[in-house]
Simulated assay, not measured.
Amino acid sequence: MSDIEHSEQGVRAGESAEFELDAYLERIRWEGERRADVGTLRGVHLAHMRGIPFENLDALRRRAPSLEPPDLMAKLVHSRRGGYCYEHNTLFSLALERLGFQVTRLAARVVVGADRIESRPRTHMALLVDVPGEPGPYLADVGFGALGALLEPVPLVAGEEFRGAGRRHRLVHAAHRGPLRMWVLEAHAPRQGEARGHWQAQYAFTLEPFEKPDFEVVNWHVGTNPRSPFTQRLYVQRVTPDRHLLLHGRLLTETRADGTAREREVTDEAQARRILEEEFEVEAPEGMTLLP
């Protein structure tokens, strides 16, 4: 084994030692098995999605959140806070590794609404998870702040539809320049006046591994760049068994399991803070401005 491999193993071992599995599982209310199999992967994935909200309060203050295990534990596990993709998927990857899974961090291009895959940078973290005894890996992602997010992981298989916790997804291949195959995650979305709905691309990725230093750079960019969507307005999401809640700026949207949605405007700071605490279970830092 090379010196580099020894060093990488040492870093991962140190991160794992700073991660508290019992506290994490209590936070997401997981009381099931603790073993490296498909059932545990799906169950913990769904429990995380429903247990820890997605929020950008640090980025809204132009602060890149720490991705160090003790800081992730303090913020996402031991306090009434959530985080965005790098925080969620870093924390989730630590849990999976402690449970016996092998995890590869991937960097993806969010392509919702994009004309071309290449027009978007790789600013999203997703995970590739190897499950002992399974013929192939799974795509897992507890940090995608959108209605098309995975609630359960899906096998890395192209062209098949997968249903999990009421949502429908599939993976397809896309043509692009480069030696690596491009995968695209698509979510099935209802369309007004169309009974069958349609497939909508969510993000695109290759299977090239990305490491902690890569995500530290992009985390700083997304969390501090004034042009980043996360530094411009409030963005908080919560998933429950029967609804999806999103507070984007002053607009609160509740989407039910059948696809029907209801919107209402948040009028002032006090109401915004109350909604965060009561609906999202997020406690905003004292003194910060939530609304533009």
Rank of each mutant, 00 (worst) to 15 (best):
G100A: 06
L247P: 11
V103A: 03
L185M: 08
G148A: 04
I275G: 05
L234Q: 09
H173E: 09
L21I: 10
G193I: 01
P190K: 10
R61Y: 07
R168Y: 11
P53W: 07
V266D: 08
W199G: 01
S16M: 14
R80V: 04
Q9L: 15
P241T: 13
V44Y: 03
Y84M: 06
S66H: 13
H45V: 05
L156S: 09
S7T: 12
P137M: 08
A158H: 13
R264T: 08
V11N: 02
S93H: 14
H173I: 02
P137L: 05
I4C: 06
A270M: 00
R27A: 06
N219S: 08
R81A: 10
P292R: 05
T267S: 07
P121S: 01
M288V: 15
P209A: 02
F215C: 07
A165C: 09
M1C: 08
A126I: 09
T255D: 05
T224I: 02
M125F: 12
L60H: 14
A272L: 12
Q200T: 03
L290T: 10
R98V: 03
L139G: 06
S119N: 03
I275S: 05
S66L: 12
H48G: 09
D258Q: 04
E211M: 06
E134D: 06
Q237N: 15
V142A: 09
D130N: 02
L94F: 00
Y235P: 03
A195D: 15
L91A: 13
Y203G: 02
E216S: 13
L127S: 02
N56V: 14
T90Q: 15
G164I: 12
V239G: 03
G39H: 07
L171N: 10
E33W: 04
A107S: 15
V110K: 00
Y24F: 15
V282W: 11
E97V: 08
D130V: 02
R27D: 07
